[in-house]
């Protein structure tokens, strides 16, 4: 007997696992190839081969970009700044708004909630064209536009601008999730804190945030991964090479006019994927939670 909800013999479990395995083949094969190819001169299918097409040709040369191409570290730092910026932005803004929407009765609360929910389902990519104009406009604002160190500012063709857009577009999801997590905190605890002498801001900071740590962790992981991976927004709104992120750098490797060295591209890809994978391994349970948690709030 298996320990899941189903009942049935060991035989059936094996049958079902086999079906699952077959369905999952493309995923496994794809990632297998990524790993193999980064250590090969080239690959024929999944088989590493040398320049003449004979099996063999294992090499570390594909990884030489790590020490030969200074650009990779620059784009890595950019990507990291983007991911961290997105995470911090999302967590701060949505935990503030989520708290108010979940816990405070104020005029306009219901319209706010309805808006959040509509935006939650709203296809934000359709707005990229208009956001382009908004960013160009922000660029003209002194200092804020393009005069801030590290992130460059919040205008067009700055890291800050990309962070801001990403935060905004992920905000409805974040707010809705945070609201869901705040909803679960017992009212009596907050009441006790108010009676003990807290203002609402203090309750939020000293009592509520510590209590929804798992939710914050989940949202942070989710945001970090999505920032680390994000392609479309940096690709659309950052044109200069030196500000690009790993994803756009990768894209530029692929679309260069010179013949593409796929093994190198795969290595850069794996380089981008590794932190996410490690992250994922340790936090997959949180992530699985966020998706299902999001639905409890959203359905």
């Amino acid at each position: 007997m298996d320990e899941t909800m189903g009942v049935g013999g060991r035989g059936r479990a094996i049958l079902l696992l086999t079906v699952l395995a077959v369905l999952t083949v493309p995923i496994v094969v794809g990632y297998l190839w990524v790993i193999i190819s980064t250590f090969s001169q080239r690959t024929y299918g999944l088989i590493p081969v040398d320049a003449n097409g004979h099996p063999g040709g294992l090499t570390l040369r594909n990884w030489s970009f790590l020490w030969k191409d200074a650009a990779i570290w620059r784009v890595t730092v950019n990507t990291f700044v983007l991911a961290v910026g997105l995470t911090v932005g999302i967590v701060v803004v949505s935990s503030l708004a989520g708290y108010a929407l979940s816990r405070i009765s104020f005029p306009g609360r219901r319209p706010f909630l309805a808006t959040t929910l509509v935006l939650h389902a709203f296809p934000s990519v359709t707005l990229l064209i208009a956001i382009y104009f908004v960013l160009r406009w922000i660029t003209h604002i002194p200092v804020v536009g393009r005069g801030i160190p590290v992130i460059g500012g919040f205008g067009y063709n700055t890291l800050g601008g990309v962070i801001l857009v990403s935060v905004a577009l992920e905000l409805p999801l974040g707010v809705w999730l945070m609201k869901g997590f705040f909803d679960q905190v017992p009212w009596d605890i907050e009441r006790a804190a108010l009676i003990d002498g807290c203002s609402r801001l203090r309750v939020w900071w000293e009592i509520m945030l510590p209590l929804i740590k798992p939710g914050i962790a989940a949202l942070s992981i989710f945001s970090f991964i999505s920032g680390w991976n994000s392609f479309l927004i940096p690709y659309t709104f950052m044109t200069s090479q030196e500000k690009s992120t790993i994803a756009t750098y990768l894209r530029s490797l692929l679309s260069d006019t010179a013949p593409v060295n796929y093994s190198t591209v795969a290595a850069v890809g794996l380089f981008q994927l590794i932190p996410v994978m490690i992250f994922f391994l340790f936090t997959q349970e949180y992530l699985l939670n966020i998706f299902s948690g999001g639905v409890k709030g959203g359905s």
Partner: peptide, 20 residues
């Protein structure tokens, strides 16, 4: 008057201790 300025103490059914 907000609760914090009333100088009251309250005990709840669920205890409502701060778990952290």
């Amino acid at each position: 008057v907000p609760p914090k300025d009333r100088n009251i103490g309250m005990v709840f059914q669920s205890y409502a201790l701060y778990p952290h």
